Simulated assay, not measured.
Amino acid sequence: MSLAGDYDLVVFDLDGVVYLIDEPIPGAAEAIGRLRADGTRVAYATNNASRRAPDVAGLLTGMGVPAAPDEVLTSAGAACAVLADRLPAGAPVLVVGAEALRTDVRDAGLKPVEAFEDDPAAVVQGYSPDVGWRILAEAALAVRAGALWVATNTDRTLPSPRGPLPGNGSLVSVLRTALDREPDLVVGKPQPGLFRTAASRVQSSRPLTVGDRLDTDIEGAVAAGMDSLLVLTGVSGPAELLAAPPERRPTYVTADLSGLFGDAEAARIPVRATEIGGWRLDGDGRLNGAGDPVDALRLLCGSAWRGEPVGAASAGARELLDRWGVSRAA
C-alpha cells in the first residue's frame, strides 16, 4: 500500500507545499489529482490570512488543483469565528491585514474599523504585504486600552521563489515589542483547530497532514494527534529536522508530494536500521556511502533524535551535510 493509501483524508498546507506565493510547485497538481482519482478526500489548511476561502479555492483551481471553498480552512476565518463567539454582533474590530480579513470580519457579523478612535473591542492581525506603521500604531493604542488582541498566526516567514520572506509572525513581533506582551490568542497553526475542523467536516477517522514547516504544520498535527508528512519544498530543511524536538517530529519525510504514492516504510522516520539505500551508519555513528539524500536524512534522524552526534565518514556524506548546513562531529 502506498503512503497515502492508508489514510482517508489528506490535509495540505498551501504555501511551500502546493505553491510558492502564486507559483505552483512542480508536480503538486498532479499529486493532488491522483489522490482525488483514487478516492482520497483532500482539504487545505493555511495560516495565510490574505485570501478568503473562496479566493483560495479559485486560485487552486486556476493552478489545475480543483478545490471547493468548503475544503479550504484559513486562519483568518477561524479567527473571525472566535471573535464572533466572544463579541456582541456588530462590535467594532480593528483589522491589521488584508481586505480579505476585513471581509471575513464583516461576514462574521462584526464591524471592521481602522482607527483607535473607533473604540475597537478587539484587534485581529493577519498577514498582508501592505501592513505599515500607521495601522500598527492604531493597533498598539487599541490593545493598550484593553482591546482583545487576536493573531491569525505567528509564522516568522513565508516561502517564496526568491527565498523566505517576512511572515505575519514578524509583523506580530512589532506589536509584541511595542506592547511588551503576547497576543491574547493565536488561532492558526500550530494550534490544532484547523486540522481537527478539517477532519470533523468529513468525519475522517484516519487523516494525514502534509506540510513544509515543523513549527506550524507538523507541531499542529502532533497536537491534533495526527500522522504527518514533511515535504522538503518549503521552509523547513534537513538541519531543522535533525534538531527537531519531539513535538515537531513528523511521521514521514519525502522530497515532495510524489512521496505520497511511494511505500510508506520508505518514508517513515526515525529509521531503526543502520543501512538504507546505499547509506550506512558506521559503528561510530558517522554517515558513510552514497545515495538518495532523503534516505540519508531518514537514517540520520534516528541517531540525531537519540542525541548522538552527526558525523560523516565519506566524501559524499561530508558534501551532503555541508550542503544542508549541518555541523559535523569530529
Rank of each mutant, 00 (worst) to 15 (best):
A139H: 07
A264Y: 04
G77V: 07
G237L: 02
V95A: 01
A304Y: 01
T74E: 03
T61E: 05
A330T: 13
D282E: 15
Y19H: 09
P159D: 04
V18Y: 07
G193W: 13
R328C: 09
V210S: 02
R272L: 12
V65C: 06
A89M: 11
A78D: 10
P183C: 05
W305R: 06
G146T: 01
A115Q: 15
R213E: 08
R51Y: 07
R144N: 14
M1P: 12
E265L: 13
T251W: 04
G126R: 01
G146L: 03
N48M: 07
P207T: 03
E30N: 08
L165V: 12
E117C: 09
E23Y: 07
D118G: 11
E30C: 05
A142E: 01
R176S: 12
V42E: 01
G277Y: 02
A266T: 14
V11I: 15
E308G: 11
T177A: 09
A67C: 10
S200R: 14
L320N: 04
A312Q: 05
G90E: 02
L299K: 02
E308S: 11
A57C: 08
G163F: 03
G169V: 05
S314W: 08
A31N: 02
G5V: 06
G77S: 06
V174R: 04
A53Y: 00
A330W: 11
P161N: 13
E99V: 15
Y44H: 02
V93F: 00
R318H: 15
P207I: 03
L241K: 09
T103E: 15
A121S: 15
A142H: 02
A78S: 11
A255N: 08
S173V: 08
F12Y: 09
A68T: 11
D22P: 04
L148Y: 10
R51Q: 14
P26Q: 11
V231N: 07
R102C: 09
P190F: 01
G291C: 10
D6I: 13
D38L: 15
A255W: 11
S204D: 06
V222S: 04
A4I: 08
T251M: 06
A273N: 14
Y127C: 04
F116R: 06
R196Q: 13
A290K: 14
K111H: 15
P24G: 00
G64A: 02
V11A: 10
S200K: 12
I276V: 14
V95D: 03
R36N: 10
S228Y: 06
L35S: 13
A151M: 04
D104L: 06
D55N: 11
G132C: 04
D13A: 01
D119N: 13
E308Y: 08
I135D: 01
A79Y: 11
Q125K: 04
A45V: 13
L73S: 05
R201P: 07
T233R: 00
A317I: 05
